[in-house]
Simulated scan of single mutants.
Amino acid sequence: MYKIAVCDDEEPVISQVQKLILEWNPETEVSCFSSGEELLQDYRPYHAVFLDIDMKGMNGIETGKALRKIDWEVKIVYLTAYRDYAAGAFSVHAFQYLLKPVNQKSMITTLEEIFRHLKAPRDSVVLDFRTVDGVACLPAEEIYYFEYSNRRVHIVTRAEEYFMVSRIGDVYERMKGHGFSMPHKSFVVNMQHVKNVKGSQIFLDNGIEIPLSQKKQKLWKQALMDYLSKKLEGGRNL
């Protein structure tokens, strides 16, 4: 059973968030608190905590920092009426932040992200990406590729697509240790999902075709062979 806490000093917000959570999964155990002090006093392990930032007494940032001292694993989702609070949320390693009033779509997306992350195998590498819609925690194996276009990076995964502001070179530097390669100046590809290579085209197992730069063909194909050899040898983190 999923266990979620909701902490806000406004009763209508608590009721709305609780309603959205139960609509997503009626069997979820939802505990409600009206202050950070109350949450900390009665705290027990939760999968996630939906936490208001602008509360009377101990605010959400202070409460989040206190939570991190007793539970590093819990996913903290901040509730706020102001976008300016996003930076403060990141300072306590918030999983996500939602603008009030919270709508059903953003709630469902956030809950599914949380529990997809929690269900990932223990030896699976899960990485955080600051997308234009907030933080996305993605298992590396579920990412097909990254594409740079119009000054943004498009992330394509098995379940969702995301956009973030970054340089594709920085993405490659971060991902190359997780079985990703850069066959083209605009693409970083997960070699785990490469199905076939024909000429200047890479075919992924989801049907997508990725261009292979002529200048990179020889080195990239050798990198693919090295990757496959390590995989056959039972190499980890591939």
Rank of each mutant, 00 (worst) to 15 (best):
M1E: 07
Y2V: 08
A5H: 11
E10D: 12
E11R: 07
E11C: 04
V13G: 00
S15C: 02
L22N: 01
E23M: 01
N25E: 12
E27P: 00
E29W: 00
E29V: 06
V30K: 09
L39N: 02
L40A: 03
Q41S: 07
D42C: 08
D42F: 11
A48V: 06
V49A: 10
D52S: 08
D54M: 15
M58P: 04
N59Y: 10
E62H: 11
A66I: 15
A66Q: 14
K75N: 14
I76E: 07
Y78H: 01
A81P: 10
R83G: 11
G88D: 14
Y97C: 00
L98K: 10
P101I: 02
V102Y: 11
S106K: 09
I114N: 01
K119A: 04
A120K: 08
P121N: 02
V125S: 15
L127I: 13
D128H: 11
F129S: 09
R130E: 14
T131W: 01
G134F: 09
L138N: 15
A140Y: 06
Y148M: 12
E161G: 13
Y162K: 09
F163D: 14
R167E: 14
K176E: 12
H178Q: 08
K185Y: 02
S186C: 04
F187I: 07
V189Y: 02
N190C: 06
Q192S: 03
V197G: 01
V197N: 00
S200E: 01
Q201P: 00
L204A: 03
D205E: 03
E209I: 02
Q214V: 09
Q217Y: 04
K221C: 11
K221G: 01
Y227S: 00
S229M: 08
G234Q: 06
R236I: 12
R236S: 13
